[in-house]
Simulated scan of single mutants.
Amino acid sequence: MTETLPDRLSVDPKSPFHDADLLARGIGIRFNGQERTTVEEYCVSEGWIRVAAGKSLDRRGRPITIKIKGEVVPYFLNADAPAGD
């Protein structure tokens, strides 16, 4: 596993940008200089994050999300963790 994070990552298992092994290591997101803990998906190159809009759900039971634009900086929460098993 590499030490660089992908340009785009999602916590939704049905998304093509989902990576369970990478998410298990712990990913943090700094958005416009502030820590964000409720990020559902991010894209560094396009400069946006997707977060849940309250507690409302769509008809399939997934949270309704909104896209917010700004500076996105992903990082590993535990930099000392081993890269692989």
Rank of each mutant, 00 (worst) to 15 (best):
F31C: 00
A53D: 15
S56R: 15
E3N: 13
D19R: 13
A83W: 07
D19Y: 09
M1E: 15
R60H: 08
S45A: 12
N78W: 08
S56E: 15
T2D: 09
E46W: 02
V51H: 01
I64H: 05
F17V: 07
T37K: 13
E40V: 15
K55Y: 04
R50M: 15
G54P: 05
K67G: 04
F76H: 03
K67N: 07
E41D: 09
P63K: 02
Y42K: 10
G70S: 04
R25C: 07
G33H: 05
A52W: 03
I49S: 01
T4L: 12
I27M: 04
V51W: 00
N78P: 06
E46T: 02
D80R: 11
D21Y: 02
G61Q: 02
V72W: 09
S15D: 14
A83G: 01
H18V: 06
R60Y: 07
R25F: 03
R30E: 11
A52V: 05
C43M: 07
L5W: 00
R8I: 08
I29A: 03
A24S: 15
E46L: 10
K67V: 08
H18Y: 15
L77G: 00
F31V: 02
Q34F: 11
A52M: 05
V39A: 06
D7G: 10
S45Y: 07
G61S: 06
T65Y: 01
I66Y: 00
P16H: 07
M1H: 11
L23F: 05
P13N: 09
L5V: 06
R60L: 09
G28I: 01
V51F: 01
Q34R: 15
K69R: 15
A20K: 07
F76I: 01
V39C: 06
G47R: 06
A79F: 04
T38R: 08
T4D: 14
E40K: 11
Y75I: 05
